[in-house]
Design a protein around this nucleic acid. Structure first.
Lengths: 334, 334
DNA sequence: ATCCAGCCGTGAATCGTTTCAAACTGTAAT
DNA sequence: ATTACAGTTTGAAACGATTCACGGCTGGAT
């Protein structure tokens, strides 16, 4: 059916061993022979069978990536960063979505193990789960993405969400705001909990400031819009003068929710800041202040850590921690 | 190192052939034996080596997907749809981004061939390229995504962009608009060209209506914003009364560009319609009318066609063509 | 009793590559 | 002439699963 090394060997009048050497260690083969074999390869259209290579050599050329939802702009960028970095090593990325469901996560991890991926990048659905730890111990290199396994032992790349929350609220306080509201999704999501914790810490130094926590079920534009409308309907006296949203989608929603009633102006009556700095933030009607996370760099770094782990078996476990960055735009402007 | 069928066979006191049968045709094995082997598998933590399976059996369990840019919301959704459908078959998706660069496209296709993927889903950078045709002839099943290879012969899933363009402009005309502008990226992108063609056709029946074409270099929010500002700066007499954008990102940009000067109101002075109906469209400040493309369904259908092609070698080549759907919101509202 | 038909299970051959010890070649040193 | 040696090339073993022709066994029909 398809052309194999054997065919190439015959065509070039050498042994299969030599063809393999041309493929993998051309410097060990006489230049004239390399040329002859190369010519045969081109002529026959030979394509190396990675399955056989993998079987014999042990190594594979793909890595698995499991995220919560690749359609979310943040994770889409993370995936993009991972893909780019992997491509530079000639590796491919297998993409899986867990949708926050442990069973789907498990299914993907199993599939990836069968495929003998070089390693797995995982945004775990549940960091406490011993399943993750077991996976890490099972021999397949693992890197935690956008999180950190309590107790260490597994390389990870994360952004300091507590710090990010502090940045956001400190900025609001600096603008003279004192009645702060935090709008966020289920607190079971670590990212949300950490950002709230950061907000609390920023407030610690300003006794006269207050924090209202508005908890939602999900981090979507529509949820944000509802929250925004609710705020806009309040008496001016009950209204916060600043809102920190757990992500940009929520913030965009709040922007719309308040705009609908038309009474609350951003930023005059209500300062608004989001999180992630997704592409759209800078292009919102009122350009949105936000806390930037280097999504692409996160993906690239995760691959980097994986490569390190592969390179030097049993070396020191590294944790990459990015610092979030405050991006000030009109929505909190003076 | 790792547990193989041989180990399982020994542990369960059967032959390797039987273990393989348990794995692949459990109905051909006595129930008691199945149970015994299954127990051994669980106890030893055996994970099937897909490379070996693939080598011997020929089939693989992954499919390749090459899109222009997976960070673009439309393609992110397409990828998501493909991933979901593939997962149901126990297959994994290898994700590649060509960034509209033929050389990157080629590199991925080569990598995927080496990996012996089951097939490739491709959004080609250049539909004319004979490279695509050669690929299709090279034995590896191919499905064109969001496009159609002129001359047929390759299964494809597409959306009728001409029809979509017609829908959009017909709607604008129906609203009484007569001075239409089309804003779009490089015409070399087939999707853009087709949508413009659709606009032209819709106008054919209304002699007194005019069409202005504003060509941009890319389909981004920022490009759209520039175009919007330019329009807003014009004298009212030179201004179009409706704009059809080649995608939603552009439309969002136009919305902002016109808002900045504050003189042109949407939809009163300017009706605005986009394309793709990305998630954000319904949540824009002025909710955006758009032409919906079923992105997820497109991805799923592509996998479907690939499965068909694998199933019935040499059967009829199918083309799935989705109909675009007009979504009317406030930006073109009465 | 004998035969036959189903079931089950066996084990060697096979897929296409990599790897490695051994063979070969030609040149330099003794 | 012999030995040493480095540079090349060879060929067979190995990786771990699937496949398939074949043999053993069981139980019912003749």
């Amino acid at each position: 059916m398809s052309v194999s090394v054997k065919d190439v060997a015959a065509a070039a009048a050498v042994s299969v061993g030599t063809v393999s050497n041309v493929l993998n260690r051309p410097d060990k083969v006489a230049p004239a022979t390399v040329a002859r074999v190369q010519a045969a390869i081109d002529r026959l259209g030979f394509v190396r069978n990675d399955a056989a290579r993998q079987l014999r050599a042990g190594r594979s050329r793909s890595i698995g990536l499991v995220v919560l939802d690749s359609a979310n702009p943040f994770f889409a960028e993370v995936a993009r960063g991972a893909e780019e970095r992997a491509a530079r090593e000639g590796m491919a990325v297998l993409l899986g979505n867990s949708d926050q469901t442990p069973s789907r996560e498990r299914a993907y991890l199993e599939l990836f193990r069968e495929q003998r991926v070089n390693g797995v990048l995982l945004t775990p659905t549940d960091l406490e789960a011993s399943a993750v730890r077991r996976l890490a111990d099972s021999g397949i290199p693992l890197v935690i993405v956008d999180g950190e396994l309590p107790g260490g032992g597994v390389p990870s790349v994360a952004v300091d969400d507590v710090q990010g929350g502090m940045l956001a609220v400190a900025h609001l306080l600096e603008q003279g705001r004192r009645r702060i509201a935090f709008i966020g999704g289920p607190q079971s999501i670590r990212q949300v909990a950490d950002r709230l914790e950061g907000a609390r810490r920023a407030l610690a130094g300003v006794p006269e400031a207050t924090l209202e926590v508005i908890e939602l079920d999900a981090l979507t534009v529509l949820h944000g819009r509802d929250a925004g409308e609710e705020i806009a309907r309040r008496d001016a006296a009950d209204r916060p003068d600043a809102v920190f949203c757990a992500n940009d989608l929520l913030a965009v929603g709040v922007l719309q929710g308040t705009a609908i009633l038309g009474e609350v102006r951003v930023p005059e009556d209500l300062a608004l800041i989001g999180y992630d700095d997704i592409d759209f933030a800078q292009s919102a009607v009122v350009p949105l202040s936000s806390v930037r996370q280097p999504a692409r760099a996160i993906g690239a770094a995760a691959v980097e850590l994986l490569l390190e782990a592969l390179e030097s078996e049993g070396a020191a476990i590294r944790h990459v921690r990015f610092q979030p960055e405050l991006v000030v735009r009109a929505s909190t402007g003076p």
